[in-house]
Design a protein around this nucleic acid. Sequence first.
DNA 1: GAATTTATTGAACGATTGTTCAATTTTAGC
DNA 2: GCTAAAATTGAACAATCGTTCAATAAATTC
Lengths: 198, 198
Amino acid sequence: MTKAAKFDRQAVVKKATDLYWEKGFHATSMRNLQEVIDMRPGSIYATFGSKEGLFKEVLQYYADMSLAQLTAYSQNTTSPINALKLFFNSAVIDSKHTAPSGMCMLVKTISELTDDNGELLSEAKRLLTVIETAMQDILNDAKKCGELSKGEDTARLARYLQMQLMGLRTYARANNSDVSVTELINDIFGNKPFLAQD
Amino acid sequence: MTKAAKFDRQAVVKKATDLYWEKGFHATSMRNLQEVIDMRPGSIYATFGSKEGLFKEVLQYYADMSLAQLTAYSQNTTSPINALKLFFNSAVIDSKHTAPSGMCMLVKTISELTDDNGELLSEAKRLLTVIETAMQDILNDAKKCGELSKGEDTARLARYLQMQLMGLRTYARANNSDVSVTELINDIFGNKPFLAQD
DNA sequence: GAATTTATTGAACGATTGTTCAATTTTAGC
DNA sequence: GCTAAAATTGAACAATCGTTCAATAAATTC
């Protein structure tokens, strides 16, 4: 008989991620989770400790996936800036249609939670800074290969990109038109816009 | 004897807004609400119908407040663009410290809710477009008084601003530094940044 | 001021929440 | 193949959820 696949923690975490991502922390019940990951309460608590414990592991998994995707784009193109643009398009357009929620799960989490779940809240914040740093690394690569002038402050640019990405994904969730969103991405990485005053 | 203040619906809605704004829809319990607005369940249900009914009224109240603030800034300055900038600063900086949550309540709502609360979700989306339109109106004023060139697409600019505001407030919640955020606002309304490519 | 309508109360409802744990099944060691 | 250890089960717990409604209080009408 085939060796039974031993308990696949990652597969379980992935399923939990989909549910938590879609419904958020509070609207997801343990009984919801039990069905989706096909485990009984005792096993879940033995493995993950609590609803919060599982959520924390889910946050880490989500961030790992995001970072992996960023790395993948970065390795498949010679242009770091283009890798970032692909990452943006993927996060905003694709994830809106295929992912459980168009929202970034980390943003959704810091938006939902309060100090009542302080550990989860600060963990989500921490992971967002990790991703911001990963974008900064790519911007530094862009400097090296001449896509970005040496004088640029990559920390500031990364912060700016992170903020844009938060706005984009949220805007995409609030509005149904994809074309507006594509326009917005082009605005960010390209041309103009702006309200320069005085 | 002084005429007893008749049931002050707005005062009640305001208190409910603060609680819902802070904790979100799901994490706010009716018993929480009962204490904060000092009404018994029967009265609440007679007046607002349900937890959702009260939340819907809260959303409307919140949007009204935002629009009123935008109008106030617009009337206190001769520069429409400056009015927008003041609105941004107020929404991002002030609200982070004084408001129940640094997040925009409408954004927080579309981030939290799913189709399980479809009416509340679409109402929040609708109110966001109302605010976007109000910003567009101000941009049109800016055109009239020469602050914006006649060729500008104010609908597109308003969309862009809305997206920026969503990103800014979310970023401000995720990070504690106010200076970074002020820098970001200056970037939006002013100078440069940018990753112009090809 | 009595009668009638309207508003308010708070105990109670059934459903669901996150979590526990004794009982059972599965695995591992020899 | 028997025994000890580890993992899994699912019924059950107390707490809390959103909501209802008969009983009471307040306001209004004539």
